[in-house]
């Protein structure tokens, strides 16, 4: 295990703490261990990638962290609160207020304009129209989508849609942004732009992003990569001061080490 990256000066607070999480599927006869006692932590302002082969448990992990699914045992702390002991009614509120989501298939509402899609995350928090307007426009400027705010999703390119979705995830200034294969449906140019956007979000707005991906190129934009195999943390790689190119090579090495069906990297 490589030691955690530490910037000079103050130690950033831990945003996400996953402690010995187990997730079992199925009944008595056919028990599947999707997560087998996984533990790790993410600090504020980190852009962390999670990689692993199909069936390694990375989506289950993300679902457990995003409160969409519940862990069988273990604890998950986000911003200090233990989401594994929260009631169902509190979880929706927590999800609304503390988490931001970016999905592979965008999950934009096709009946709403770009502006309305981003605003939605704030309207369900009952923010004032003036504040909504200010924040939507600010985040759109950072992501370079000011021109498409009046358009409907079907009038946008894939990259624009995903940036609108990212704006929606980030506009509430959540504690943690969870991205599930955000570049999966994008062409390489759009993917590159999006990932650079993520980097600037982390730097300019101090966002914390946890991104699941199986694409090494996407992963190479992260600060740190966690590799998962058979429901356990297998390895992790920290970018540190190295260039994106050498970080990419590092990631490829681990992938070849992982072997097996991890070769499904595009």
């Amino acid at each position: 295990m490589t030691s955690q990256q530490m910037p000079e000066g103050a130690v950033p607070p831990v945003i996400l703490e996953v402690q010995d999480v187990v997730k079992l599927y199925g009944g008595k006869g056919n028990l599947t261990k999707a997560l087998n006692g996984i533990s790790f932590a993410v600090a504020a302002g980190e852009f962390v990638g999670i990689m692993g082969a199909s069936g390694s448990g990375k989506t289950t992990l993300l679902n457990c962290i995003s409160t969409i699914d519940t862990a069988t045992s273990g604890r998950i702390l986000i911003g200090g609160s233990d989401i594994t002991s929260m009631k169902q009614s509190d979880l929706s509120r927590f999800r609304r207020e503390s988490l931001g989501f970016i999905f592979q298939d965008f999950n934009l509402l096709d009946t709403l304009t770009g502006y309305e899609n981003i605003a939605l995350a704030l309207t369900i928090l009952r923010r004032s129209p003036r504040e909504i307007d200010r924040r939507v426009k600010a985040v759109a400027a950072v992501l370079g989508i000011s021109q498409v705010l009046k358009k409907f999703p079907y009038q946008m390119s894939g990259g624009q849609r995903q940036r609108v979705a990212s704006a929606r995830a980030i506009v509430t200034e959540p504690t943690l942004v969870l991205a599930d294969e955000p570049t999966g449906a994008l062409d390489s140019k759009s993917a590159k732009e999006l990932l650079e956007n993520f980097q600037s979000l982390v730097r300019q707005r101090a966002a914390t992003i946890l991104m699941v991906t199986h694409d090494a190129f996407s992963a190479s934009h992260c600060d740190r990569i966690l590799f998962i195999r058979d429901g356990q943390l297998f390895h992790q790689v920290v970018r540190g001061g190295s260039s994106r190119k050498s970080f990419f090579d590092q990631i490829m090495q681990v992938i070849s080490l992982l072997g097996g069906d991890a070769n499904d990297v595009d």
Partner: peptide
């Protein structure tokens, strides 16, 4: 009337209805 439109799911409901 932004105070109504940008409240809760109102924008969504209105868009649904109008479509």
């Amino acid at each position: 009337t932004k105070s109504v439109y940008l409240k809760g799911l109102n924008a969504f409901v209105l868009r649904q209805l109008s479509s």
